[in-house]
Amino acid sequence: MLDRIKASLPSLAPAEQRVGKLVLADPRAFANLPVSELADRSHVSKPTVIRFCRSMGYDGLSDFKLKLAGSVSEGVPFIHRSVDMDDKTSDVLVKVIDNTVAAFLKYRNDASSAAIEKAVDALANTYRTGKRIEFFGVGNSGIVAQDAQHKFFRLGGSAIAYSDGHMQVMSASLLGPGDCVVVISNSGRTRDLMDAAGIARKNGATTIVITASGSPLANVTQQAGHIHLAADHPEGYDRYSPMVSRLLHLMIIDVLATCVALRIGGDKLQPLLQGMKDNLRSKRYT
């Protein structure tokens, strides 16, 4: 987070630059001081402090402070520790877990709550109107799409996942206004997914994309005014067996499903889930 602020300083207005320099000088103090004190120390107005936070991609001062406090207190550097051929099992255990934990902590600190809020609104509205929620992914992302279907169909709405490119194109051709499609891609460069997402957008469906920032899929989605949930990590998209990326995508799906369930409300959802649980008891050994 601090590296991003430092890199962004030249592009900010002079007043916002002073706020950024105050953050870099003492991030812990910035996270704990009131807005009036921050404005005085930066020699700017209170709205400028808030404007700086929004320029950095956060919802406001409270959201910025929350992410900043987490960033400076974790003590877990986001360094991808690749597994070496001569690693012992204990080394592999530590490296794989550390990579995953670091990626999760970085996402927690960097994630745009505003983008997640838009995605949750779109999914909840689609649920309420009885329209279709679909999940597209191929390869490892196809498995994440299936997990998403498993989580969302239990909420009682219409949810389905497709991992075949032809099925994605055909299904996207049938989507329309009010429907919602979630496209999951590690690289953001898969032609089938980009084609299907383009068709869904053209037909008026809301498109939510979970992929890396700066990828072709992310750029097209943002230009079209749809929703991009950034899933950034140090793992190359061409690795044979993605680990961190898959777990990060699964976590984002968990966040979306949990938020949508809360929007639906316990009064409506709890009896549905309890009935499902009761019906599954006969499938288990006592």
Rank of each mutant, 00 (worst) to 15 (best):
S141L: 10
R18K: 12
L229M: 10
A197V: 15
N279F: 09
N109K: 05
L22S: 06
D63M: 00
L61V: 04
V138I: 15
N140R: 12
P234A: 04
I143N: 00
P216T: 05
A145M: 08
A212N: 13
N32M: 01
A7E: 15
T286E: 07
R281C: 15
V44K: 10
K202F: 06
T211K: 03
P271T: 02
A205D: 01
N279S: 15
L248R: 13
Q17T: 15
M251C: 14
F152N: 00
G156D: 10
P47F: 06
L247F: 12
L273Y: 03
S173R: 04
H43S: 09
T258L: 10
D59Y: 02
D147E: 11
M243T: 12
L12E: 01
G165N: 10
S36E: 06
G156V: 14
L247A: 08
S62D: 11
M170T: 07
E117N: 11
T129L: 15
V244M: 08
H80Y: 09
V120S: 01
K131P: 01
V44T: 12
S158N: 10
L66F: 02
S113N: 11
T221K: 00
I227T: 08
L68M: 07
K268D: 02
S163W: 12
K46P: 03
Q222A: 05
T286Y: 10
A7L: 07
V220W: 02
I97D: 01
S11K: 06
L256R: 07
A115Y: 14
V244D: 07
C53M: 11
A119H: 12
E117H: 12
V19C: 14
A231C: 11
V138T: 10
I210S: 04
K46W: 02
H80M: 08
R154F: 15
G198L: 09
I133T: 09
Q274W: 04
P27A: 05
L12C: 05
D110Q: 13
G20S: 03
M194V: 09
A7P: 03
D86A: 04
M56K: 03
